[in-house]
Amino acid sequence: MKKHLLSAADLTRDDAELILETAEELRSLADRPIKKLPALRGRTIVNLFFEDSTRTRISFEAAAKRLSADVINFSAKGSSLSKGESLKDTALTLEAMGADAVVVRHWASGAPHNLANAGWSRSSVINAGDGTHEHPTQALLDAFTMTRHLAPEKGQGLDGRRVAIVGDVLHSRVARSNALLLHTLGAEVTLVAPPTLLPYGVDSWNVQTSYDLDAVLPKTDVVMMLRVQRERMNASYFPSVREYSRRYGLDARRMATLQDHAIVMHPGPMIRGMEITADVADSERSVIVEQVTNGVAVRMAVLYLLLGGAEPAITTGDTVPEPVEGSTGPTTGDGENDA
């Protein structure tokens, strides 16, 4: 794995599978009396949020704390109108505080790239959502959730599984990261949206597209509904909320056309009655609450794999060697390697 997690495209299939397997081990922690592991003791992780997202911040915070890291929450919101100097100054401050990793949420696409590459800071940078670009840990937790439901046997992957991502793809960082990661994992992604809400050039993505939700639903294993903001209506992306819901909303009638094993996902926060009806969101097919639980395990896995081993500073170049068991010779069975 690289030192940073900026894009789902940074992850090879091996990387992604390692994260998902590690998350699977870490998920059981939630069932133990002491929900804490010592792996990141003494490490400092900063949650740097230039945009409000309580749920993402809490998820990262819980993940870091369960790994015994020190967590500093830094909210710098309200700067979307001011110049970006604040990102640089903030980065320098965090550097001075000795942050080992910065979890960054930002309104500007690419801000985590700037943080990682502008030379302002030596910390690992984890993208917790940037503008309309990417949200790689959300994609990882979605893939993790899909794997648990659709490929419960160990070693079983998502190869050939069909995932429909429905809604405002154009403005969705979740859709971008999911499209990239799910392709890496061998799943077949179909983006379903009115043509106005599909990105220009989407033909070159490794996905299929459709304007017709009803045609896609019976064939899909997963249907992931994206949030659609009402304001999009005013920008003429669609004529009215009612028309949008009628054509692209998931209601009980549409849900009934799904295959028996198919699951319904939503990255949250949901707008019930807009893209998804309440009865669908609360139905047995819905894994929306489980997505939240899995988010903590997946983020623990990412933090552990980025920070748990040797200091990035003593590795050469930008990458930490592949965290593979016994990578320096088989040792785990007895593990009595000398310090």
């Binding site: 390692l18 397997e21 590690t22 081990e25 870490l26 592991l37 010592p38 792996a39 790994l67 552990y304 794999l305 980025l306 920070l307 748990g308 081993g309 040797a310 200091e311 590795t315 930490v320 060697p321 592949e322 965290p323 593979v324 068991e325 990578s327 320096t328 785990t332 593990g335 390697n337 310090a339």
Partner: peptide, 16 residues
């Protein structure tokens, strides 16, 4: 793995 005293000395290891 996570309790090893040499955890920080080598790349992060997969959990068992």
């Amino acid at each position: 793995t996570m309790y090893r005293d040499d955890l920080r000395m080598r790349p992060a290891r997969a959990l068992l």
